[in-house]
């Protein structure tokens, strides 16, 4: 009993828990920066650590040492709360996603709904943090984030719940296990849903075709314009963890998640799938230019929501 509890705590803190996820977050930011730089014919970070691998970590440590400013017009409580929740919400979500084996660290029937709840809460925190920072730019950024939510929320949920139908379960661990055992990856059985989910995750992560809430050339830095020092460090780490979360969702719900192939352990297979999804996201991010907010809303309602619905209907006809 005691050893079980101890091993659970160790798992929570070290291996598929906090330490592993945070290292993975820094590493995936480096991978993304290097990948984007190579596409743009640049080198990317080179001199910090071998091949610049410590660059995201150096950024984080530097930000921790900077002066902490709370603007006079900011709402102090939410200004402190938003960076904390920006980090803790995606971390919590990563615990319910299977990484090392068939079962996630915390798994219960209906954790898919919990995941959807966390994603919506994140956007609402972004909106609150931007709106209550007391700057015009951050206010515009927060409002844009909330407006964008109206566009991508519905197709995102439809694509998220698509893989639950063939597996007839609302638990992420069961869905990925079912896909791995029956060799029916979501990518092959419902390709339109995969595309819709990738588009909506790009919008959720505020990456390039949809980086309207933090459009640097229009509204300075969007909703995080007033964050400095420790708060900015937490916001940026939260963004990195969210990147890991997005690629993990794609790997778990549409690519079968961690599965044993021959003698290769599940974690290696999982990391390979995760980084494939990460590079897909990075490739799309580099390829496109930013849309306007009205183009995003009309495009989502005209094309992406019908596509998600068609996928759902096809799925219902088959299963």
């Amino acid at each position: 009993m005691v050893s079980e509890a101890l091993s659970f705590i160790l798992q929570l803190l070290i291996f598929p828990g906090f330490l592993f996820i945070i290292c993975l977050a820094f590493f995936s930011e480096w991978v993304l920066r290097k990948f984007v730089a190579r596409i743009q014919n640049r080198m990317g970070p080179t001199y910090t650590g071998s091949g610049g691998i410590l660059q995201p970590f150096a950024d984080f440590i530097k930000l921790l040492g900077k002066e902490d400013i709370v603007p006079a017009f900011a709402e102090r409580t939410y200004f402190t709360l938003t960076p904390l929740l920006c980090l803790t919400l995606p971390l919590t979500a990563l615990f319910i996603l299977p990484m090392t084996g068939h079962r996630a660290l915390i798994s219960f029937e209906g954790d898919l709904i919990f995941l959807a709840f966390i994603f919506t809460t994140l956007t609402i925190m972004v909106f609150l943090g931007g709106f209550l920072s007391g700057s015009v730019f951050s206010m515009v950024g927060g409002v844009r984030a909330a407006t964008q939510l109206l566009g991508y929320e519905i197709p995102f949920l439809l694509a998220l719940f698509g893989p639950a139908i063939p597996a007839s379960s609302l638990s992420i661990s069961k869905i990925s296990t079912w896909q791995a055992q029956n060799n029916a990856w979501g990518l092959w059985t419902q390709p339109i849903g995969f595309g819709v989910l990738v588009i909506c995750l790009l919008a959720e992560l505020e990456l390039l075709p949809f980086d309207i809430p933090e459009a640097e050339t229009e509204i300075v830095a969007g909703w995080n314009v007033e964050f400095t020092g420790r708060r900015l460090a937490l916001v940026r780490l939260g963004r990195d963890v969210e990147l890991v979360l997005a690629s993990t969702i794609l790997a778990d719900l549409y690519l079968g998640g961690p599965q044993q192939v021959w003698i290769i352990p599940p974690i290696i297979i999982f990391l390979a799938k995760m980084f494939a999804c990460l590079l897909l996201i990075g490739y799309l991010k580099t390829l496109f230019a930013r849309f306007r907010i009205d183009q995003v809303l009309s495009g989502m309602w005209k094309y992406v929501i019908p596509a998600a619905m068609i996928q759902f209907i096809i799925l219902k006809l088959i299963w």
Binding site: M43, G44, P45, A58, T217, V220
Partner: peptide, 21 residues
């Protein structure tokens, strides 16, 4: 821009003076 690419040295352009060193 790519030819000199200051990101090699960890240099990044930020939009807000609140983020700047």
């Amino acid at each position: 821009t790519p030819f000199h690419d200051a990101e090699r040295l960890g240099v990044k352009l930020v939009g807000s003076p609140r983020h700047a060193d």
